[in-house]
Design a protein around this nucleic acid. Structure first.
Lengths: 244, 244
DNA sequence: TCGCTTATCTGGTATAGACCAGTTTGGCGA
DNA sequence: TCGCCAAACTGGTCTATACCAGATAAGCGA
């Protein structure tokens, strides 16, 4: 969408938009490569004859646009291209990342068996107290943590699921071991800021822009199988869905 | 998702998170109703024994979470509930808004016949130079502008389309007048900041968080019909899709 | 050469003001 | 009562500075 916009050069507008435009140009011209570090806030302020506060306004602007991201107390970096992601498909995160020429990684942070609370019961259709295996994972692209997720599995429908290696594809596991084909998915998503504990798990400040995605999957008899809740950094993905 | 989080009270954390929590509590407890105005930045700063800069940090946090929004130089307001929106369905915006107990409005800002440029040709499959009717609209919920959209219609597939009343449902028009059923949709969306000219059209500051949604629709013979490009304010919608 | 300490650099948070440009409101005059 | 204008108020932008905490790099000593 960018290329056809008449980017009105904000030469006479606020200083922070001037600084924004200057950095955005450098990114588009390839002077600043993906994942490379920007000059420090103090340097940006000085070289534009302004203060850190104003320089930070420009950086916040670029961050909101998804063009740069920050690494806590290390600096600002150019965002790499977004991962194309189709939440309606049952493919593996890892395969998808590899197919786009990137390097995936998954960390399993926690596996617990819990009982469905009111919120989960409403989302899944189970009764409160029904057993659920909760899986907490963090996923990375090229070494950057881009999402954390909570996966809630129907322990009755998937007996023994908690004994498997969760760093592999859950979808393959369901298909190969349980002979399961997912028949229905309800997907919900909206943009929001990441707050603790998700922000902390991703190593970003509370308030960083994110995308919240949930998926509820059922088998071909309508039985609840899996509820997935994902917290993505907002600049890391582009959702694409093809409906026929 | 909010209700089960252990909101660690940031009593000992940064001031701006304390202020954030205080306001968030007032919203959740109903002390601040949707669309009501918050105290001014200066009042918030004074009553928390801090400065406007810090108060604005707290407000920016809440804005990023989609809990409050701003109206230029008028103040900060509590965000009403998100509109549930299914971009895979062919229903009318207005009907959908009404069904959720809200009041819709649509303004047609511009209708022009143009020739497909390189970008449009790539998105639609048409050749460069093919005729396209471009429709530019702004849509409101309860008086608040929540999105602007550019609709690109295949002028050859929909002869005479530019003579109709575009404040009504395009989808009904296609169905009733052209006997058209849309067979395939390619949808793409990602969070990003709104910049000019979209920010200006919505009356928000450049850099306000948004959601960019595109839909490309074809008839049952694969012929391109409509390409829709929507710029939403990020706190106004929740995407829900049901796949079977 | 290796490991540890330390100095330096980074962004994170905060103060205390200032002026500007729109919005809203209150009061005055016709 | 109505319309207009001015005052008060709002957020938008900006300066100049300060201290903190974590990350990093430099340098020293074993």
């Amino acid at each position: 969408m960018r290329e056809r916009e008449q980017e009105q050069s904000s030469a006479n507008g606020p200083i922070y938009l001037r600084v924004r435009d200057q950095i955005a140009d450098q990114i588009e011209n390839g002077l600043l490569q993906p994942n490379s570090r920007l000059p420090s806030e103090r340097v940006l302020a000085e070289s534009n004859h302004t203060t850190r506060v104003t320089a930070r306004l420009a950086l916040a602007q670029l961050e909101a646009e998804g063009r740069i991201y920050r690494s806590n107390r290390r600096g600002w970096f150019v965002s790499p291209p977004r991962l194309v992601y189709n939440p309606t498909e049952d493919y593996s995160f890892s395969d998808n990342v590899v197919a786009q020429g990137r390097v995936p990684a998954t960390e399993t942070l926690d596996v617990t068996t819990i009982e469905a609370n009111a919120w989960l019961a409403a989302k899944t259709g189970l009764a409160e107290g029904d057993p659920i295996v909760r899986l907490h994972r963090r996923r990375q692209i090229d070494g950057r943590s881009v999402l954390v997720e909570n996966i809630y599995l129907n322990a009755r429908r998937l007996p023994g699921i908690e004994t498997f290696d969760f760093n592999r594809s859950l979808w393959k596991l369901m298909r190969e071991h349980y002979g399961l084909e997912l028949a229905r998915k309800q997907i919900e998503m909206f943009p929001t800021a990441l707050v603790d504990p998700q922000a902390e798990a991703l190593g970003v400040n509370a308030g960083t822009a994110g995308l919240y995605v949930t998926r509820c999957s059922r088998d071909n008899e309508g039985c609840f199988v899996e509820f997935d809740e994902e917290f993505w950094l907002h600049d890391t993905l582009s959702i694409q869905v093809d409906v026929r």
